[in-house]
Simulated assay, not measured.
Amino acid sequence: MISFNFLLRILRIPGVILSTTIQYFTIGTIYTKTNREFNTLYKNVHLAVENCLANQFQLTDIPLVVYQPMSKLFRKFKSNPMVKSGNLPGYGGVFDETVKSQWFVKNEGSKDVLLFFHGGGFALNCFDAQFAGVLMLYHALPEDKKSKFSILGLDYTLTFEEDGQFPVQLYEALVVFKKLLSQGFENIHLIGDSAGGNLVLTLSRFIAYPEEALKYFSKFDKYDFKSFNISVQPKSAVFISPWVQPLHLNSNVHGVDTTGDLGARTTIMGDWLIEGVSTDKSDFEDWITFTKTDPSKYMEIDFFKNRHSLCIYGSREVLRDGIESFVKIIESFGNMETHLEPGGIHDGLFYVESLDYLGNGGQLAIDGKFNDKYALSRVVDFYNRIL
């Protein structure tokens, strides 16, 4: 049964749509006043409705109201021009039966593969806009890059599912990473938005620090972490509004107006991740609270040493202070390309920019119309340089 509080929020949606529409055509919304990407009524209403519902649900609400497996999105997007006319060999093919993972595109003979971890606080599934964002990114690459590049999505276990708590998401990511290497992929690139960015960091730390990792994760005897003797590190990492401190409240030292942002304002989803695992949040500081991790525990990660990492976030994000604390840690010893989007909100690439390419809008991507997207243009430039 849907929780009473979430039901009340659902009942508020018509009023949110009406007020947002009136503001859009009169004084402007908080989105149109701060960020150029909110150039349609649909985007403003879409984000206002999502903000109305964000952080207002209980864990039991998710399978009743929200959840859809990524496999359903693969079927749904078959009619989108980005798939229908997009020349995506291997689209929808299952990669691993035991760990839910499917190909967005698998180009024969490619040595470079992008592994996508979606956001959603480890509680929410991949949404249409995130799925469209991956396809949009692929089509924005130059033809000579696309033909040598494959993309795989991991539909990792969520916290409302049985055995959905930490560290199952890491275990599943390791299974996929190791299998990609065994199939001949030489350069594994990681990209994650929000909680997906957190998983990118956990995976990368595990591979770069095997002795420390096995010592810590040996207590999780449900998973065979000893089987992951991985000597090849990720080639690169892209972080879109990474959720780097899910167990700690974020500050707002800049005093910015975060109205309408979708970033986590509480630690409830982080608490779901460790529920039943430990009551001491300090137990997780080295592995999921990355503003608390000592800089020395990042220094062996190759993509931080060779500037093969990129972080994009928005100036109006709830998570901004946490992200910038993390960036300072990396910059104390290494290099990471960073971009702060003026007026940007949480996860702009996958929550906002991709909305133009839903449904028949996917034809815009086929026609190469990307309209100077802030985050997309920087991610594409990044891959152009390192692929």
Results as ranks from 00 to 15, higher is better:
residue 356 D to Y: 12
residue 21 T to W: 02
residue 147 S to P: 02
residue 168 V to N: 04
residue 380 V to T: 15
residue 295 P to A: 04
residue 348 G to L: 07
residue 107 N to R: 11
residue 174 L to P: 02
residue 260 G to L: 03
residue 329 I to L: 03
residue 162 E to K: 15
residue 113 V to C: 08
residue 145 K to M: 14
residue 377 S to V: 02
residue 35 N to P: 11
residue 190 L to A: 05
residue 327 V to N: 03
residue 123 A to G: 13
residue 302 D to Q: 11
residue 341 E to I: 15
residue 134 V to H: 01
residue 380 V to E: 08
residue 97 E to P: 12
residue 317 E to A: 05
residue 354 S to T: 10
residue 325 S to M: 12
residue 153 G to V: 07
residue 332 S to D: 07
residue 187 N to H: 10
residue 116 F to C: 06
residue 142 P to R: 03
residue 386 I to Q: 11
residue 225 F to A: 08
residue 55 N to W: 09
residue 149 F to V: 02
residue 375 A to T: 15
residue 348 G to Y: 08
residue 324 E to G: 06
residue 109 G to Q: 05
residue 383 Y to M: 12
residue 324 E to N: 04
residue 360 N to H: 08
residue 165 Q to F: 05
residue 347 D to E: 13
residue 148 K to N: 14
residue 338 T to K: 04
residue 378 R to I: 00
residue 138 Y to D: 01
residue 245 Q to A: 13
residue 50 E to C: 14
residue 89 P to L: 00
residue 311 C to Y: 02
residue 365 A to N: 02
residue 203 L to D: 03
residue 372 D to W: 02
residue 170 L to G: 00
residue 16 V to H: 11
residue 108 E to P: 00
residue 42 Y to V: 05
residue 339 H to Q: 08
residue 109 G to S: 06
residue 368 G to I: 08
residue 202 T to Y: 09
residue 180 L to I: 01
residue 247 L to A: 06
residue 106 K to N: 14
residue 165 Q to E: 12
residue 340 L to D: 04
residue 155 D to Q: 09
residue 119 G to I: 08
residue 383 Y to G: 07
residue 75 R to Y: 14
residue 95 F to I: 04
residue 325 S to P: 06
residue 281 K to Y: 13
residue 75 R to C: 09
residue 314 G to P: 12
residue 221 D to I: 03
residue 306 N to R: 06
residue 71 S to K: 11
residue 111 K to V: 01
residue 72 K to R: 09
residue 304 F to I: 14
residue 147 S to E: 15
residue 76 K to A: 12
residue 132 A to G: 11
residue 4 F to G: 04
residue 112 D to I: 00
residue 302 D to C: 06
residue 333 F to L: 03
residue 90 G to W: 10
residue 246 P to C: 00
residue 385 R to G: 15
residue 8 L to I: 12
residue 114 L to M: 12
residue 37 E to A: 09
residue 85 S to M: 09
residue 269 M to H: 14
residue 259 T to E: 11
residue 14 P to C: 03
residue 15 G to C: 08
residue 356 D to K: 13
residue 382 F to E: 01
residue 347 D to T: 14
residue 98 T to M: 08
residue 229 N to I: 14
residue 300 E to V: 13
residue 283 D to N: 14
residue 2 I to Y: 11
residue 265 R to F: 09
residue 109 G to A: 03
residue 238 V to P: 02
residue 7 L to G: 05
residue 333 F to Q: 10
residue 314 G to E: 07
residue 13 I to L: 10
residue 249 L to A: 10
residue 336 M to G: 02
residue 229 N to H: 11
residue 31 Y to K: 02
residue 92 G to F: 10
residue 232 V to I: 15
residue 112 D to F: 00
residue 193 D to N: 15
residue 229 N to R: 11
residue 300 E to H: 14
residue 181 L to W: 06
residue 219 K to T: 13
residue 199 L to M: 13
residue 88 L to G: 04
residue 92 G to P: 08
residue 125 N to F: 02
residue 330 I to A: 01
residue 218 S to E: 15
residue 340 L to S: 10
residue 152 L to P: 01
residue 350 F to I: 10
